[in-house]
């Protein structure tokens, strides 16, 4: 990636967004829908990471877990407990789906932290698909499970009658903003972190500032490690909350 600043101290050149450019892996042609790109490559790495962690890690089936097996069990227990706590017993049916989202996001985020890596989750295309999948699933599921009763989600029965139509409009808007904030939050956080690291890297051109820049990059990197996990966690927990709304729409 041609993100390194040009080296003239006079003109600082930042290309914080160049790291997100999607390029074909082979050749330099146009990107059609099936072209293997760097995005596809790193999604593939995420899939491999999930397989290594969850499948190979647990392959020994030992009662006393090895290191990788205990990580797999930890991830399983973490998400399982989250789904069970928030959605209740009926939600456990959708646990593999939520686990898929979590594992993909967390692996993609962490792999994206490797220097020169590409982060698929920094692209709105990816997160919008993830969020829309959740949104559509939850909406369809809500109507299938509760029929028209799902609309009671917008009719706040605990509020005074006069306020209810206004609240209904607000609830409706907030319901349709969900996929937007759901997707933008993840992509925005990941993109912001990576872009800020690049900006600090751009400052490293100036000899006097470069030590500060290196320290700042290190600090941001630590923050990004945290953010990578927390955003995956938040995405998953919000999915659970939305799913709970579909399963039990009554406030």
């Amino acid at each position: 990636m041609a993100t390194e600043a040009k080296g003239e101290e006079a003109g600082l050149v930042f290309h914080p967004m160049d790291q997100f450019i999607i390029k074909p892996l082979f050749g330099d042609g146009a990107i059609t829908w099936y072209t293997p790109t760097n995005a596809a490559l790193w999604m593939g790495f995420a899939v491999i990471a999930v397989i290594v962690l969850m499948l190979l890690g647990s392959s020994k089936r030992s009662i006393i877990p090895s290191r990788s097996q205990s990580v797999a069990e930890l991830a399983y227990g973490f998400i399982y407990k989250m789904v069970e706590d928030i959605c209740g017993k009926e939600g456990v049916k959708y646990f593999p789906y939520i686990m898929t989202l979590f594992m993909f996001i967390v692996c993609a985020n962490f792999l994206g932290l490797i220097p020169t890596a590409f982060t698929p989750t920094s692209h709105f295309a990816v997160t919008v698909v993830l969020a829309m999948a959740v949104f559509l699933t939850v909406t369809i599921l809500g109507f299938v499970k509760n029929g028209a009763g799902f609309l009671s989600l917008f009719w706040v029965s605990s509020a005074p009658l006069a306020l209810r139509p206004i609240l209904a409009i607000i609830e409706l808007i907030s319901y349709f903003v969900r996929p937007v904030s759901h997707s933008i939050r993840l992509a925005g956080n990941v993109m912001a972190g990576h872009a800020v690291i690049k900006v600090f890297a751009g400052f490293a051109v100036i000899t006097l500032v470069s030590p500060v820049s290196v320290v700042a990059i290190t600090a941001m990197y630590g923050l990004e490690v945290l953010v990578s996990f927390i955003q995956a966690y938040v995405f998953t927990i919000l999915t659970c909350v939305y799913l709970k709304d579909a399963l039990h729409p009554h406030h």
Partner: peptide, 23 residues
């Protein structure tokens, strides 16, 4: 803690929107 993270996520989402507008 789950509620905490949900709250943080909602508060941060709006900041991310501002960041997005800037970008």
């Amino acid at each position: 803690t789950a509620t905490l993270f949900i709250g943080i996520a909602f508060a941060e989402a709006l900041g991310i929107f501002a960041f997005l507008v800037a970008l």
